[in-house]
């Protein structure tokens, strides 16, 4: 792996984030609405509003505000929340782990089930399984997450209460927050029961969040596999007398993975930034809800911080996907 390439991509990342910070800064200030007014509501007096605006530094010219923001940013300071004065970096850190845990769990479900369903469908095209799986995939793609989440909640937490209704773990069982990832923290604390409980809490939101990417991955896998299975090298592999499972998994699936990896990368980014509905339904204390609440309150510092973090995560995922191409297909070479 040429290190020069990686260095250049990381440098690009810096410029991308700088651009994102400027665009977000300007867009937020173009939205009509005075943050002081939104914060204090209709019950505030003119004096209270003026005092708060001055405290927030909103009276200064925009370039000055951006310059100050950038200066702090370069020192790793994302600023202070306008709503409660707390450091935005700490607020984000508290919630990021919850979102990451949910998104990764959803991604794992979507990837394994999606690829498995896609492969089986492609191996037995137009069979009953294929028709049923692709119909379900179509339903999965089209189903509103909001409705699905509420239905799952009603069925499995209210009617047949086998799974918890909401939250990340039962009250009083919270482990010491080392990583912020409930599953990891319970394991580190050696609390098997709490781990199982955290896992149970994760099932419904993760399944809800996984539905759309699962359906997409299943469909992509099927079409990519169908194409690969008609290639000469697959016929050759079969002619050599290789076991069918080796043909499918080693020869066909590996070559079919390129478009799947692209979709995985895109979906993981979407899951991280788009979990807001699932987080809202299942009272999951993640970053999605924080960014929406911050946006509604015109909490500039919080929104800017969140978008920067999302942008950085997406850029890193893209980089990983690009590097994965080279690992999967030896014909792809990365040039420094």
């Amino acid at each position: 792996m040429p290190l020069g390439y990686l260095g250049r991509r990381l440098l690009h990342l810096g410029f991308v984030l700088l651009g994102v910070s400027l665009v977000v800064f300007l867009m937020l200030r173009m939205i009509p609405g005075d943050p002081a007014r939104l914060l204090l509501g209709e019950f505030a007096s003119a004096e209270d509003l003026a005092r708060l605006r001055a405290q927030m530094g909103l009276e200064r010219p925009l370039p000055v505000q951006y310059g100050l923001y950038l200066g702090r940013l370069l020192q790793g300071d994302l600023g202070q929340s306008l709503r409660n004065g707390a450091p935005v970096a700490a607020e984000i850190a508290q919630r990021l782990a919850a979102t990451v845990e949910l998104a990764v769990a959803a991604m794992l479900i979507a990837t394994f089930l999606g690829i498995a369903a896609g492969v089986v469908s492609a191996v037995r095209p137009y069979s009953l399984f294929d028709t049923a799986a692709m119909l379900l995939a179509l339903v999965g793609v089209s189903m509103p997450v909001f409705w699905l989440g509420l239905m799952l909640m009603y069925l499995f937490a209210v009617r047949v209460p086998v799974l918890p209704l909401m939250g990340r773990i039962g009250m009083g069982n919270e482990p010491e927050a080392l990583t912020g990832l409930m599953l990891v923290d319970t394991l580190l604390a050696g609390e098997g029961e709490a781990f199982l409980e955290a896992l149970q809490h994760l099932v419904l939101p993760a399944v809800t969040l996984a539905t759309v990417p699962l359906a997409i991955i299943a469909r992509i896998t099927r079409s990519s596999m169908l194409e690969v299975l008609q290639q000469d090298y697959v016929r050759t592999a079969r002619a050599k007398g290789l076991d069918e499972s080796v043909v499918i998994l080693r020869h066909a699936l590996r070559n079919a993975l390129l478009p799947i990896v692209t979709v995985l990368g895109l979906n993981l980014g979407l899951l991280l930034s788009g979990a807001v509905l699932t987080e809202t339904i299942f009272s999951w204390p993640g970053l999605g809800r924080y960014v929406v609440d911050s946006l509604m309150a015109r909490d500039y510092a919080a929104v800017q911080g969140c978008i920067l973090v999302f942008a950085a995560i997406l850029a890193v995922i893209n980089l990983v996907v690009d590097l994965a191409y080279a690992a999967l297909d030896p014909r792809i070479r990365i040039h420094a």
Partner: peptide, 20 residues
């Protein structure tokens, strides 16, 4: 007292109905 944030009103209703 545990004050739980449940932003979705339908989920809040279900939480009350289920005794959560």
């Amino acid at each position: 007292i545990v004050l739980k944030s449940i932003p979705e009103p339908s989920a809040r209703l279900m939480a009350l109905q289920s005794g959560t």
